[in-house]
């Protein structure tokens, strides 16, 4: 057991260090990108605060002075990094509320969507991948291969719109957008989940094919275990290892997808907030949300590492 905790601590330390590095890089890059955006930031922020009809050059000038937007870029960067080091994300430039509070609400929604997407993708990828893996090169296998390529090639926003048209507009099974209850979760989850499953079902399939062709699979059979017991006791666990690792790799796609799909479905999550903050030049919000998404990626990878250690006893053995 001591070995197990030691290896978990190693993982935690490595991911902790990665989190710090990600914070600094994302902090600098998001700052630089906001600086590089064309247009007058003070003007856009003033418009966000008072509405386009209610603001004028004087209001924009007041905003500029209040937020210190006229200071040289390195002074602003230094101020931002200094705040970051104190775990202070500042206040929204548009709403004046603390960024942390905004993100805390949105993050919950985004995690719900991400969780829903992973669940949806596994619901599709596992049965399809196992069925095709047990019957490689069958008709089913080839059809799934074609479908996978097609679905992976369709961008998430297009898939989302198609799902809305079929299941919300035509069949009226699910609401179109927004968030009122759990029924709103289904369509965006599957929009993301189908894209994830399009690749991961093939990974499951290959892992199952490899396991089924192994010497230990044959020996499990010839020592007398039934095909079903061999599958559940040996094949699935061995096949799970590459699959879990791959799901970790897919998280990058997931985070990118969250930004797009939340916008399509008006989902009150962090990706939606990021897009709005960019339009409103709410620099503090952009930096805060980008940072959260970066750290989310590190945290999800940590979960994958720990899951792999749970499945593979070799990692924690002597």
């Amino acid at each position: 057991m001591a070995h197990y905790f030691k290896s978990v601590l190693t993982v935690l330390a490595a991911r902790g260090l990665q989190a710090i590095i990600v914070s600094v890089i994302v902090g600098i890059v998001s700052f630089a990108m906001m600086q590089a955006l064309p247009g007058d930031a003070a003007f856009r922020i003033a418009a966000g605060r008072y509405g386009y009809d209610m603001m004028d050059a004087a209001a924009a000038e007041a905003v500029r002075l209040e937020l210190g937007l006229d200071a040289p870029w390195f002074v602003q960067l230094w101020g931002w990094l200094g705040q970051l080091a104190q775990f202070d994300l500042g206040n929204s430039l548009v709403y004046g509320t603390p960024v942390v509070d905004e993100i805390a609400t949105q993050l919950g929604y985004s995690l719900l969507l991400a969780g829903g997407a992973v669940a949806a993708s596994l619901m599709i990828a596992l049965p399809v991948g196992i069925a095709t893996g047990l019957n490689p090169n069958s008709l089913l296998d080839r059809i799934c291969m074609g479908l996978s390529i097609f679905l992976r090639a369709v961008p998430a926003f297009a898939l989302g719109v198609v799902l809305v048209l079929i299941f919300a507009v035509q069949l009226k099974l699910f609401p179109v957008a927004g968030f009122r209850g759990i029924e709103n979760l289904i369509l965006p989850s599957f929009t993301l989940g189908i894209g994830l499953a399009a690749v991961s079902n093939r990974v499951v399939r290959d892992a199952v094919v490899d396991a089924m062709n192994s010497d230990w699979q044959l020996f499990a059979r010839t020592k007398g275990l039934s095909a079903r017991l061999t599958l559940t006791r040996h094949v699935l666990r061995n096949a799970a290892l590459p699959v879990v690792t791959y799901v970790g790799v897919q998280l990058a796609y997931l985070i990118e997808g969250v930004v797009i799909v939340e916008t399509v479905f008006a989902w009150p999550g962090i990706g939606h907030a990021l897009v709005h903050a960019i339009f409103g030049r709410d620099i503090a919000m952009v930096q805060g949300t980008a940072l959260t998404l970066g750290l989310l990626y590190v945290a999800l990878n940590l979960c994958v590492d720990l899951a792999c250690r749970g499945i593979d006893p070799r990692e924690r053995a002597l």
Partner: peptide, 10 residues
């Protein structure tokens, strides 16, 4: 090949 005949994870 006894090594390869045993499930590496069990």
């Amino acid at each position: 090949e006894p090594w390869r005949a045993l499930d590496p994870l069990m």
